[in-house]
């Protein structure tokens, strides 16, 4: 499905796998109170790409119970199925194949292979195995990984369409912990680099974007805010602000002051 986004050319669009997206903020859809809050938060965020999880259908479900893809229709959003909860390459592959069938030959997936339930850090070696196989099977792989520049480059070389290093552990809200690694990843990359996981508040998202990230993916920072809709809007602004600041190019840091008002013509 992976909807071809723009009908008109977008300014400074995020480009992934040949498609353009009007927002550089990607959002998850977990942890919300209900589907209505999910829908409103996604709307308030301005995100065009939304992640979903693939899970067993609840067999006790009443007919007519609303479905996530009804409130976030795939003709309106680019649905990014994830492999959250997978601890082996095999499970991740299986989940992606199910997602492809579920979403009518959908190719764009978010690969994550977790290594440890406490930190949810990625199992990088299993991630590499899964990424290679998925690319071989024609998937467009956006891959969650550690903030290791060597691994990020390797995933890119394997054919992943975006590399998504963590800012901090999933759901931790700690913000970008290793700016210099993220910077190194960005400098070396020829595919979009999207900080995925660990953003806690708007300034964290702005920092990631100011570093030169192509986008930010978050879930908990919005869903667990006291007012998720307000935070979703804040994140939209933060990502835009951070991107604009990056493109504008910041002033150099100086140790000492540099007067803003001219000294010529002072009356004293």
């Amino acid at each position: 499905m992976t909807k071809p986004e723009p009908t008109q050319p977008l300014q400074d669009a995020l480009r992934i796998a040949g498609r353009s997206y009007a927002s550089r903020l990607l959002v998850g859809t977990g942890k919300y109170r209900d589907l209505e809050q999910t829908r409103l938060a996604v709307e308030a965020s301005g995100a065009r790409i939304v992640t979903v999880a693939i899970r067993r259908t609840n067999l006790g479900q009443k007919p007519g119970e609303p479905n996530l893809l009804e409130v976030l229709p795939p003709d309106r959003y680019t649905i990014l199925p994830n492999t959250a909860g997978c601890y082996t390459a095999e499970d991740a592959l299986r989940t992606c194949r199910l997602a492809r069938e579920l979403l009518d030959d959908h190719r764009l997936v978010k690969l994550e292979v977790l290594g440890d339930a406490k930190t949810l850090f990625p199992d990088v070696s299993a991630t590499l195995v899964a990424a290679e196989q998925l690319v071989k099977e024609g998937f467009e792989v956006m891959v969650y990984t550690s903030d290791d520049p060597i691994i990020a480059k390797r995933l890119e070389q394997m054919g992943c369409v975006a590399v998504m290093p963590l800012a901090a552990p999933i759901g931790s809200g700690l913000g970008v912990q290793n700016r210099y690694n993220i910077l190194s990843i960005i400098e070396n990359a020829t595919v979009p680099i999207i900080v995925d996981a660990g953003v806690g508040t708007a300034s964290d998202a702005a920092i990631a974007m100011e570093l030169g990230c192509d986008g930010v993916l978050m879930n908990t920072a919005i869903a667990e805010a006291k007012d998720p809709l307000l935070m979703a809007a804040a994140m939209q602004h933060a990502v835009i602000a951070g991107r604009q600041a990056f493109r504008a190019g910041r002033m150099p840091r100086r140790r000492y002051a540099s007067a803003s008002s001219p000294l010529d013509g002072t009356v004293v």
Binding site: K31, Y32, T38, A53, I54, A84, A99, G171
Partner: peptide
């Protein structure tokens, strides 16, 4: 099993089916 084949695929004793959908996730 692709959706198009659901009408013709018959189940047998002991078969294991997994039926999945998309739900909220990050």
């Amino acid at each position: 099993v692709p959706r198009s084949l659901w009408p013709e695929v018959r189940l047998s004793e002991g078969d294991r089916a997994e039926i999945v959908r998309a739900i909220g996730g990050g």
